[in-house]
């Protein structure tokens, strides 16, 4: 068994044996879907004439997947460093790529399962999401998004040393970003300057991409812009994450 496979296996077991976290990782975005679905039931967005659900479902899905990626890796890295697990790994010939690669594969698995479950619920008549024929394009966009947000979470996990700090920092990043990127409220209904500002937020690009793929808003060029934006964020955050990575708080 390779070091990568060993770490992936250990991470998978740790994850699936923590029933509470497992449940809420999948229930949290669904909860938002239910709340917003009830609030905006049957309404259309005035500016575009499209139903709210076609904004909110992709938006909440993107936010839920991004949130799980950031929190999952940030908590794990912080806890592994605090408990000297990273120090243990550091003393074995394991390359850093195996450590980060194993977390990446776990985050991808979680994100894709989250997305499938979420879309299945959103398609129920109560919520009334209608899928576009190009929905499979959401998969590569989600992969790019998870990569970018995983790297962001790795940065958070390298700069924090308590669970409280992880929660505070990650929430500070993710909650305002969710609103400013249109996850919980349609960007089309926001002021012009807010829409302009949202371009510097990675979640905006994930929202655009997932929305375009699932509901058919925009053209393929817009999907390309979203994918390109996410790729840039993934590279920038990835470089910073590798540079910030610390095996121990004490060295």
């Amino acid at each position: 068994m390779s070091a990568y496979a060993a770490l992936r296996g250990a991470g998978y077991r740790a994850y699936t044996r923590d029933r509470t976290t497992l449940f809420f990782t999948f229930a949290f975005p669904l909860l938002f879907l239910v709340v917003f679905g009830l609030i905006f039931s049957g309404q259309d967005v005035e500016e575009s004439g499209r139903p709210y659900i076609s904004y909110i479902a992709p938006g909440v899905l993107s936010w839920g997947v991004a949130n799980a990626a950031v929190f999952g890796v940030a908590f794990t890295l912080m806890q592994w460093r605090r408990d000297d697990i990273l120090r243990l790994i550091r003393m074995t010939p394991t390359p850093l790529s195996a450590v980060l690669g194993s977390r990446f594969v776990l985050a991808l698995g979680i994100g894709l399962v989250q997305a499938a479950l979420f879309v299945a619920v959103a398609l129920l008549p109560a919520f009334g999401l209608a899928l576009s024929g190009r929905w499979p394009l959401a998969v590569p966009l989600l992969v790019l998004g998870i990569t970018a947000f995983l790297a962001l979470g790795a940065i958070v996990g390298s700069f924090t040393s308590t669970p409280e700090a992880v929660a505070a920092v990650a929430n500070c990043l993710m909650v305002p970003m969710a609103f400013l990127s249109g996850s919980f409220y349609p960007l089309d209904a926001m002021p012009e300057w807010m829409r302009t500002l949202s371009w510097i937020l990675p979640l905006r690009h994930l929202n655009d991409g997932v929305s375009g793929a699932l509901t058919g808003s925009g053209d393929l060029g817009d999907l390309g812009v979203a994918a390109g934006g996410l790729a840039v964020f993934a590279v920038v955050f990835g470089v910073v994450a590798v540079r910030c990575f610390r095996w121990s708080d004490r060295v």
């Binding site: 077991r13 740790a14 697990i85 243990l88 003393m91």
Partner: peptide, 29 residues
């Protein structure tokens, strides 16, 4: 590194694994 053996802190275990699973992970590393 593989020629050195370092006793870890008693906190440095992969969470929610059994003793055998933890040691198997370390062995694989």
């Amino acid at each position: 590194l593989p020629r050195l053996g370092v006793q870890t802190q008693s906190s440095a275990f992969f969470v929610r694994l059994t003793a055998r699973e933890h040691l198997a992970t370390v062995a694989a590393l």
